[in-house]
Nucleic acid binder design. Structure first.
Lengths: 344, 344
DNA sequence: TTTATATGTTAAAGTGGTTTAGCGCAAAAC
DNA sequence: GTTTTGCGCTAAACCACTTTAACATATAAA
């Protein structure tokens, strides 16, 4: 017993395939109420489900949105154990699904073959998370698809952008640390790239220090990569700079690593060193002490991204650059500055 | 300029479409070496990429494998912020991709509509993570697809299974706690279901206690749900049973919550209470103290699942039940039992 | 009344692959 | 020496939808 097709529905309800198609897709030149009723009845009776492959072939549109995330360093595996991406993706997927679209995941790392796959399937649009080597953006442009970049500052009219005001957010975070009386504040961060968010966060950090007339010591800036391991390693370096009493990490994952590294060195947090994160990933409340951090509302941001994309795909007017909100979350990893013995 | 099709390749290399198709798909009745060369050349020159929709329509196979994971409780969002699923998925995806397949993610929760989507797209097989209401399995069977269940004990010839030896793993974990001298050992767990892994882990736990002639106190079993929040809540209940000196959690996520809850109550870990986890998700080394746990090699398990599936799809012989290995990882959350003041 | 416009519907022609059936021709088997 | 087998290749039909063009009929406008 083969699968029910649109043809079966047409025969069962005594109309042409085209009328059925019109009803299913809710097209302008609507069928009469009676016809619609008949057809819907038949669809229900015969348990008809449209075949997406046929639909996609005929219309060269797929109701699929490609979502690009990074691969792990050398494994070529989706960087899903980074909760930032995981949470963002579940946000994107849910909103996409609500709008009748489907998410197609693709990783990008040493190779871009995953993008080929995406193009084989005729995706309708692209949402790209994070930042990649230059070349990728050219490749993206050749695909001639509506493309939304999340958290990047690539300048090109082809792309739409979604991000927070990274400069302002870092400024606010640093100010919070300053307000707690800290004067020697480190920045622990991933790689600083011209077209990335971190450069803006660095600017916000510097701006806050300057406004408070604090020295901007380049030795207080620890640049590595976005990950737990780097945070752990940074702990040692940070301790070596023994005046530092607080650290602002540009990602919670780094902050979590920093916490672990500091613990290993026998430091108490926040008594010895205050740690501030960024993102508010789920892990930030699982570490000890729970992280004070900048909430990005990651899932919500993902949903906004998806909705922007579906608007684009339905030719609605969409701003080229959209900003989402940020909010400080106060937990237990930051405390007021207290003079330490060796500072006396 | 329209996309290059197989027809273009056929014309360019002076053969029929069918010959091109045969070469591309590497089919039995091979073309002559010369023809193959000509065709491959044309493919490269014209930058031809097969259209998957067309291929899928014509062959009613899609090179796609549906992967089913749970939705969040009431949000209908993919449960990706549970690192267990996130890690498993990146394993599945990478192995699938290496075999030329593509992963299609679908969530299941209050509704199963996501499964419809999957069937619209003609997926070739199904990998199902975790455990669901009875009804889902009937639905799964009606899809008449090769189906691999990960971590479930549903009895039905239709399904293939992949899991660890949950009983033995829990036995080993509990024995480790016993070997450290603990006598009053709690089990903190998600819901115990007839067809789930937890029932087997409970059995292993009980078996270890029995073998060591320890009392099996039902008050030492804390049944809730698999999640950080439940772990936190369980901490209070566990403390109320003041003889308990160690807890075996059936998931790292629960263990992480337990840690947080115990901290909040001023407990020291492992000095006051030892905590053992299960899974070895990435978070287990981020919490404080780092979790001693049972490693499931989640990513590897995902890869094994994917390889089983592709074997199934290529009609290779496959065992109906496959077991993966488990290994204890000793970190800092378990210590030897020490007599406490109030136990004197 | 005639003409224009909109509505509801349809038949036929794609969309880009694969499946099926079969055709020459050469080598192997009888 | 004839028949069988297998190889390399092809033409045509088909997969389940959408696009296009067009045709009645009803209603509104001139």
């Amino acid at each position: 017993m083969a699968r029910t097709t649109i043809k079966d529905i047409a025969e069962a309800s005594g109309v042409s395939q085209m009328t059925v198609s019109n009803v299913i897709n809710d097209r302008k030149s609507k069928a009469s109420a009676a016809t619609i009723e008949k057809i819907n009845q038949a669809i229900k009776n015969l348990n008809y489900r449209p075949n997406m492959s046929a639909r996609s072939l005929a219309s060269s549109a797929s109701k699929m949105v490609g979502v690009v995330i990074p691969f792990t360093e050398n494994q070529n595996q989706l960087l899903l154990d980074n909760p930032f991406y995981a949470e963002m993706i579940s946000g994107i997927e849910s909103a996409l699904r609500e709008q009748g679209y489907y998410m197609m995941l693709a990783g990008v790392g040493e190779s871009n073959v995953a993008l080929d796959v995406i193009s084989h399937w005729n995706v309708d649009g692209l949402i790209v998370l994070g930042i990649y080597p230059e070349g990728l953006y050219d490749l993206l442009k050749t695909m001639k698809l509506p493309t939304l970049l999340i958290d990047s500052y690539i300048e090109d009219d082809h792309f739409y952008h979604l991000r927070v005001d990274d400069d302002a957010a870092a400024f606010e975070a640093t100010n919070y640390l300053i307000a707690q009386g800290h004067k020697n504040i480190a920045l622990v961060t991933g790689a600083i790239r011209e077209d990335g968010v971190i450069k803006r966060r660095l600017a916000g950090y510097n701006r806050a220090l300057k406004q408070a007339n604090l020295v901007q010591n380049p030795d207080y800036i620890f640049e590595g990569s976005v990950g737990f391991a780097w945070g752990q390693k940074a702990a040692d370096k940070l301790i070596a700079q023994n005046k530092i009493t607080a650290a602002f990490c540009t990602a919670d994952l780094i902050a979590a690593g920093l916490l672990a590294g500091l613990h290993k060195n026998g430091k108490q947090i926040p008594q010895d060193i205050s740690v501030m994160g960024f993102d508010n990933i789920s892990i930030s409340q699982m570490v000890y002490p729970a992280l004070t951090t900048m909430d990005q509302e990651i899932v919500g941001k993902g949903r906004i991204a998806a909705n922007l994309m579906t608007s684009l795909l339905t030719k609605k007017q969409v701003e080229r650059e959209v900003e989402t909100k940020v909010k400080i979350i106060i937990r237990d990893s930051v405390s007021k500055f207290k003079m330490r013995r060796d500072d006396v």
